[in-house]
Write a protein that binds this DNA or RNA. Sequence first.
DNA 1: TTGTACGCGTTATCAA
DNA 2: TTGATAACGCGTACAA
Lengths: 339, 339
Amino acid sequence: MTTQKDVAKKAGVSFITVSRVINNKGNVKQKTRERVLRVIKELNYYPNTLAQGLNANKSNTISILPSLRDQAMMEEISFYRRIIAGVERYCCENEIDILLSTFRGRPDNIDCLRHYYLRKSDGLIMIGVSPTELLEKIERDKIPCSFIGETGCPERANFLQSDNRWGSRQITEYLIKNGHTKIAYIFAENPSTDIIDRYESFTEVMKENNLDFPDSYLFYGDFMENGGREAIRKIASMRERPTAIVSATDRMALGVFDEAKNVGLSIPEDISLVGFDGHEFCEFMTPQIATVIQDLEGMGYMAAKLISEQIDNSDKQGESHIFPVVFEPRGTIRNIRED
Amino acid sequence: MTTQKDVAKKAGVSFITVSRVINNKGNVKQKTRERVLRVIKELNYYPNTLAQGLNANKSNTISILPSLRDQAMMEEISFYRRIIAGVERYCCENEIDILLSTFRGRPDNIDCLRHYYLRKSDGLIMIGVSPTELLEKIERDKIPCSFIGETGCPERANFLQSDNRWGSRQITEYLIKNGHTKIAYIFAENPSTDIIDRYESFTEVMKENNLDFPDSYLFYGDFMENGGREAIRKIASMRERPTAIVSATDRMALGVFDEAKNVGLSIPEDISLVGFDGHEFCEFMTPQIATVIQDLEGMGYMAAKLISEQIDNSDKQGESHIFPVVFEPRGTIRNIRED
DNA sequence: TTGTACGCGTTATCAA
DNA sequence: TTGATAACGCGTACAA
């Protein structure tokens, strides 16, 4: 391995001069600098970032921690990957590398901070991780941290979230305005804060409009297509069917959409459908699936940016951001008003 | 920051004993070990992987390098993310972290190896990177390396690729068997090896069957929907339209599929369509889009596994793997044979 | 402008 | 079973 020493020897300077050159310190004679740079090229020298990090106690790296368990793969889930895309954009612009944690622990596990302690990651982006048990250490050790999909009072940590409640309200009010009163909801088995907010806002609007929401209209899905498929199958066999289905995620909505054909229901003629997320495939279906578009990429970008600012200024407070969402009523919603 | 020293002091041992405990060396008295472990918990001690890496000259990390440029985001592209999902699975199982390079260089740039030199990544996974200029250094420095989407004679490097030629052959022969003779092809502007193989195999089969493939039937797309949209628009206005379109990627096929409605062509009645990739959305369209399914997740897994083996055994030769693909003729192909 | 001494946290080697 | 010393490659502080 080529080190500063090797370069220094060949260039006829001390290794500290080499260090100065790679760090662009001013106090090196132009001619010396050029000579050193030439030798660096010749010897294919790269500074050892591990050693640099050991010195500086930082690694020019941001870690992304998913809250996944077991076999779940972060890249397979649109939610994560769209966030990561935003993180990546920021990190590209700022020449920071991204460390994907492959650690799988309980979402509330204190070990979520391990990349900071272990690898000297400059900051952590937590996706779907509950902050409660972590906040004390984050404060104490001043760990730059962004929580995505969670709310909280920021001291040091940053919180980013979509405006789930508003999005869900838009959906529900729109359906009601279009004559729907019997609305089914596909919730999730292990709901995240996001999912809970959506559901609560839905029931809230239903109540405001004095509409009944019977237990039989509430379904529990698995976030993915299958959850939607199961729901629509049950709905198909119901005596008094709802006229609309609101799904907490687009992928479950897609399951409804696809399975509807098999159970002899057509969308939106027999039943209306709305998802939540803004997954790109919604636009490609015929009819296009109504949904609420989240700016996940923007959230990822902001998460990285806020962390970066805290790295540069360790006194910086955390920030809370609620990202606006856009409700797209599309072809899967039918107006059934009788007037 | 808590170090071995701190633990050692509190536990009343020398720091080297602490090192032995965390590395599970045998020569520590059971009672001492327990005491040290307790203090480690108490003080929230984590070994500094940077220092460990500096010593061992490795970092328990695998780097993924995309060949993307500029603003392109690796997570946005299904191809990359499915590979990464496979890498992630292997790395989860083996407790290796993943480093995403945010470096954007020319695909043939020697700096693709920088993560190995800079960050002491134990191995590199190159996606869509041309190996030619890199092989010399890979040999010399014995860099564990897997190239995905490229072919080559492995010395040290591993090569993984889908059987693009076979897949493309299946498509073309199937179309011909179904009576298609006028077939358009949507190629790509800056084709990767994968894309070239597909195209070449297509023209090969056309020749074998003495079928004409005029220049006017060849289109150049951008890998994404838009490429397909542009192609179908041009095709719609052609005097002598092809009866089938083969797209080098699913996303371009999707563009064709979606835009066809707008230009008054229906699939497969007016024109048949086949993609290539195995993107999940193909199944959800009506009719389902015919495609060739690649095992990208498996390739990612294998890429990481081969690298790992070389890390453990630096004399291990590289391997070449061609992954079988599955052609799924689906609803977008119409049989137009006249018999 | 250039160089020397030291420390970052860890592990390997050798000695006790 | 345990400990002292050196080394990994680099950057800071200070000296020349």
